[in-house]
Amino acid sequence: MAGRGKLIAVIGDEDTCTGFLLGGVGELNKNRKPNFLVVEKDTSITEIEETFKSFLARNDIGIILINQFVAEMIRHAIDAHLQSIPAVLEIPSKEHPYDASKDSILRRARGMFSAEDFR
């Protein structure tokens, strides 16, 4: 296929990032900007939101994997993103199990079947 492929970005806790970087998704570009963000206890919500928006703006990113508890912090930003590329996928984290009722995609799907959830 023509052209260079896109990247997978990760926003999550240390273990999630380490795991996916072990799998080989990590990149540091020429400006030394990484395609991942390790969310620590002292990482501010503004920082997470800015990173998320910068990932959306980058055209070399195709998928953004984000821990569900981090996604909860910036829910408004995730809900505002309606395009299919880059795709935002919520994944569980070590401390927080996956809750399908919070997932933005499943919430949208449910919205198709009930009037009060419909947006």
């Binding site: 997978i8 080989g24 998704v25 990149e27 540091l28 590329i85």
Partner: peptide, 21 residues
């Protein structure tokens, strides 16, 4: 031992994806 501090200073992605609408 297995922490963010040990990530390499140079990284090249080993996985890339091709998207098409």
């Amino acid at each position: 031992q297995v922490s963010a501090l040990q990530y390499a200073s140079e990284m090249e992605p080993l996985v890339r994806i091709h998207t098409r609408k």
